[in-house]
């Protein structure tokens, strides 16, 4: 009845175990998704509603200063917004695990450091990709979104959005580890992520903003991500004044990598010392 296990002696063995742990925990994410019909609605239906709503409501009133179709302008913005909001669901999920003592239990098990968070990240990322695919489909079929340019650039656009989503997930995870409940984590992230997505060029061109607000929006990483996606999808953009918006792809990649480089280690460190209580 006793099953004895010894940790692998080699570095390679440990790495392999770390990967297995990550995959097993990512699998937990998928199983959770399957067990929660409401969550599937959130992942699949919400993005569709957003696409249609914003496309037709804002689209009916906004004309782009530089010309071009608003809905083509809008789609990269909504993609970015859904990626950014991934921070909220990551924060909530990790805070709920904390409050329930699941994190405590996982931390007393011989699991590779970081595997719990990386597994969670992988599951969250695949969720985000699912949402992205759903939105792209809606955009193409319903809202008349048309990416131009070669398919590799379009794929690169989606990859960039996913990278940004991954980065935001680490921000959410880090903040979620400070919360005492899922609801608190939601408040801790939603309250600034959502406004930030509007303080960017996602929905409206920045030309009309007052100077100081424009400076914030110009340097908002989310603006860079949206501009980069527009460029890669061949969708209309707006006149760029700041450096990040004149070099959006470089800026978006740099921002995302920077966010990961800061928040992933912070989250792992916090995870190792945080305990339920």
């Amino acid at each position: 009845m006793t099953v004895t296990i010894d940790p692998p002696a080699t570095r390679l063995g440990r790495l392999r175990w770390g990967l297995t742990d990550t995959l097993v925990l990512a699998g937990r994410g998928y199983s959770r998704l399957r067990a929660q019909p409401a969550e599937i609605v959130a992942v699949l239906v919400f993005p569709v509603i957003m696409t249609v709503l914003f496309g037709y409501v804002f689209g009916s009133a906004i004309t782009l200063p530089g010309g071009g179709d608003y809905r083509n302008y809008l789609m990269p913005g909504i993609f970015m917004q859904v990626m950014a909001m991934g921070a909220v669901s990551s924060a909530t999920a990790v805070a709920e695990d904390m409050a329930r003592g699941v994190i405590d239990r996982l931390r007393t098990q011989p699991i590779a450091r970081g595997a719990v968070l990386a597994g969670r990240g992988l599951a969250d990322l695949s969720r985000a990709l699912l949402s992205l695919a759903m939105m792209a489909l809606t955009g193409l079929v319903v809202a008349g979104w048309r990416p131009h340019g070669n398919p590799f650039r379009v794929l690169a656009g989606f990859a960039l959005l996913a990278l940004f989503g991954f980065a935001m997930m680490w921000v959410g995870t880090y903040l979620g580890l400070f919360a005492r409940s899922g609801a608190q984590a939601d408040g801790l992230t939603f309250s600034w992520v959502l406004p930030m997505t509007f303080l960017a060029n996602a929905f409206v061109p920045l030309e009309g903003l007052p100077g100081w607000l424009r400076a914030v929006a110009d340097w908002n990483p989310m603006s860079a991500v949206v501009s980069a996606a527009r460029e890669l999808f061949g969708n209309p953009g707006s006149a760029a004044a700041s450096w990040p918006l004149r070099h959006p792809v470089t800026a978006a990649v740099c921002w995302s990598v920077l966010i990961i480089a800061v928040f992933a280690p912070l989250a792992v460190r916090r995870y190792r010392t945080a305990t339920t209580r």
């Binding site: 940790p7 003592g101 405590d104 007393t108 098990q109 339920t276």
Partner: peptide, 21 residues
């Protein structure tokens, strides 16, 4: 600590379970 985690079990004050699984 790493080696020790192979030798202990903990049942805490909360039932530390994944409620959805």
């Amino acid at each position: 600590a790493d080696r020790l985690r192979y030798r202990i079990g903990l049942a805490g004050q909360h039932a530390a379970l994944d409620e959805l699984l």
